[in-house]
Simulated assay, not measured.
Amino acid sequence: MKFYLPLLALGILFVSCGTTKSIIDKPIIFNKEREILTLEYLSKRYGLEKDTPEIIPKMIVLHWTVIPTLEKSFAAFNNPSLPNWRPDIKDVSGLNVSSQFMVDRDGTIYRLMPETTMARHVIGLNHCAIGVENVGGDKDQPLTKAQLKSNIWLVRYLADKYPIEYLIGHYEYTLFENHPLWLEKDDGYRTKKTDPGTAFMKKVRKNVIDLKFKELPK
């Protein structure tokens, strides 16, 4: 299955909303194993029976990796299956975590997966969400101004391409539990998140207010 055009690997420049930025393709492994695991995830967790792992993006979710380098962050996502996966445990998905994008600390934007292929990065909403991971994020390596600028640009780039309705931080995902977009079947499957921080989200939102995303559920 081919997901990438050869030219994209060269880091083609994109122009959106009056700014120019480069997106560099750095694909994680998306082989037959990952495709099968993704389709199983869509089926078991969301009740979606699909022939391909494609999504229609309606949401952008911003994250941090709390891993200090691009190389280590990439390595955490690269393998198709979770390193500690036990397939004998019922109803536990072995699909590794991932995201469509990763932003390094210098602001360089990497595309890890096609924008319309499902990545596992947010409970309940992966079927409609594009994930943006930011390298770092712990107290010793707070997110940078360069990352902030790149996130703002990337949000605009994606909103220009897709019918994006919501922009959220990972810590806000549970607000959607009673929303039509929420499809997680397991009421006990939740994790507490703080990424990418309230201050970071406030700054991103302030700079894309003109895009008029929908308000988050109360």
Rank of each mutant, 00 (worst) to 15 (best):
L5C: 10
K218L: 12
V66C: 10
E115C: 03
P27C: 08
K149T: 09
L7R: 10
S22N: 09
K32Y: 02
A119K: 01
N134E: 01
N178V: 00
L10V: 11
P196M: 06
K185E: 04
L181T: 02
D186V: 02
I29Q: 09
D187Y: 03
L148M: 12
L95F: 07
R45K: 15
K192Q: 10
G11E: 09
N151K: 04
N126W: 00
C128R: 11
L125S: 06
G11W: 07
L70S: 06
G94N: 12
L148V: 07
L158H: 07
V61R: 02
I56W: 01
R205I: 07
N78E: 12
M59E: 04
I55T: 03
E54P: 00
D195M: 11
D51W: 01
P53R: 05
N84H: 14
Q100L: 06
T117C: 08
N134K: 03
K26A: 14
S16H: 12
A159C: 12
Y171K: 02
L143I: 12
K149N: 13
W64R: 14
V135W: 06
N134S: 15
K214D: 00
T65L: 07
F77G: 03
Q141H: 13
P83Y: 12
G188S: 05
R86V: 06
V103R: 11
L10F: 10
V204D: 09
K44S: 13
K193P: 00
S73G: 15
K202A: 15
E177G: 00
Y4D: 11
V122K: 01
P87C: 04
N96I: 08
V155C: 12
C128E: 03
H121M: 02
G107F: 05
K44M: 05
Y157E: 08
L143V: 09
